[in-house]
Simulated scan of single mutants.
Amino acid sequence: MRPLDGIRVVDFSRVLAGPMATQILAESGAEVTKIERPGTGDESRIFEPVFEGGMSAYYSAFNRSKRSIVVDMKTDDGRQLAFDLAAQADVLVENFLPGAMDRLGLGYEALAEANPGLIYVSNTGFGQSGPYRDRKGYDTIFQALSGVIDLTGHPDGPPAKVGVPFADLTSGLWIVIAALTGLMGRVSSGKGCHVDLAMMDVQVSLLSLPAARHFALGEIPARTGTEHPGRVPSAAYRCKGGAWLFISASDQHWPVLCDVLGLTEMAKDESLRKNLDRVTRRDEVTAALSSAAALRERAELAESLRAAGVPAGEVNTVPEILNDEHIRARGMVGSFDDADRGATPGLRTPARFSGYEPHRFEAPPKLGADTRSILADELGLTAEQISALYEKGIVA
């Protein structure tokens, strides 16, 4: 048994945020049916790079453990099939522009009449209301508009996007939060609901700390590179040989940090004991720590700091962290069996629930791999009816 066993999810979403969310639900036990268009399916199926055997690495990262049914929703019969599947679901996830699902006859009001308990999550760029509701956008557009890009980068450099698709990934997590919150609300109310979840709103909500500084101080937060605006030291320092080490120290760590780095005079300086004083003298402190760190090999310095109780972390590359002994011991790098390639690596869903079976970790579905079985087993169509749908090109 898994935590979400018995929960049915119909997934109309494509590319990243929605598929990421429904993959988390699927690997937690929900039965997720991905509804895809004929021919191409989710456009991320052809995104580069691809594994040997032809599967997109991008697609495989967000579509494991699901089923795929191909339905032509440009046809009346196709829309009816999609409606019938949603009428049996607990959760629906879609990421079309506002009004698109209504025009297909698959909007919340129509489906709620047939399925009052449905949790219907609409993940759009700008939401169902507001002057920007009909705008299109991508991850980096939301990063830019929200101020995230303006906050990222070094003070003397241009703005920079986050190194991962930050807006998509955080929105995916909020889709999961919204779906599970809706399901919990249904337990007490007996009713489903429509969730209006805008990627733009998600990004703005993540500005909580910069916004708090603006509300309190009236400041316009600036780019700080790896430094923390309110704590010194908290930054990446370059070590001997060029590798980087991140050091973050509070007041109780400060004298110990100075001792490890050989900064005897700074350790004795009472005017640097409090963080507020170190923030005021940021340039002086940063210069001293940078010079001291540059004389030490990263591995040796990191171990010395950790042994002394000072928080420190190597700035790893992606291959370094994927092969890290702790990450491997935690089982974060897993492997699923792809029919065309065999064992294929991927990153596991991180939550672990005691008393339940482990999360699923199954290969992404081939396009339309489950169409026939879903039509027969869930919609109760006869072999003749199914054959007719295939012949008309309504399903594939």
Rank of each mutant, 00 (worst) to 15 (best):
R213C: 10
A363L: 05
E391I: 13
L367T: 01
S28Q: 08
W254L: 11
R67I: 09
G18E: 06
P116G: 09
P365V: 03
V195A: 02
G147Q: 03
V318C: 05
R64A: 02
H359F: 05
D102F: 15
G39P: 13
Q23V: 08
G380N: 11
L272R: 00
P364G: 05
D340S: 08
V70K: 02
L85K: 00
A388H: 08
I119W: 01
R79V: 04
Y108C: 12
S205C: 05
S56Q: 04
E325W: 06
C258L: 08
V10N: 01
A312L: 05
G342T: 08
N275R: 04
D377R: 13
I119A: 03
S271Q: 12
P38N: 10
P38G: 14
R223I: 14
V176C: 12
S68H: 01
A307M: 09
L305Y: 01
E303T: 13
T40F: 12
S291F: 05
I69W: 00
I386C: 14
A236C: 09
K268V: 06
E378I: 04
E384C: 10
K74A: 14
R213M: 12
T181V: 08
A26S: 09
D251P: 03
L173D: 02
P19I: 07
N123S: 15
K34S: 13
L173P: 00
F96Y: 15
E31W: 00
A57W: 03
V395A: 10
A178N: 02
S146C: 03
Q128Y: 12
Q88S: 13
L145P: 00
F336G: 00
R223Q: 14
P319E: 06
T140W: 10
L92P: 02
P365M: 04
E378R: 10
I327Q: 03
S13D: 11
A235T: 02
A383F: 12
A211G: 07
T152Y: 10
H253E: 13
T286E: 12
G29F: 05
V50P: 02
Y138Q: 13
R360K: 11
R341H: 10
L263Y: 01
P3Q: 05
S248E: 09
F215K: 02
V93F: 11
E52S: 14
T152R: 06
E325S: 15
P3F: 12
V91A: 02
F353P: 01
A61R: 00
G127I: 11
H359Y: 05
V279N: 00
K191V: 04
A343Y: 06
R79I: 07
E325Y: 05
A86V: 05
T22S: 14
L389P: 00
H154Y: 15
P210F: 05
N275V: 15
I177R: 04
T224A: 10
L381V: 12
I35M: 07
R273Y: 13
G54L: 07
E378D: 15
D5K: 05
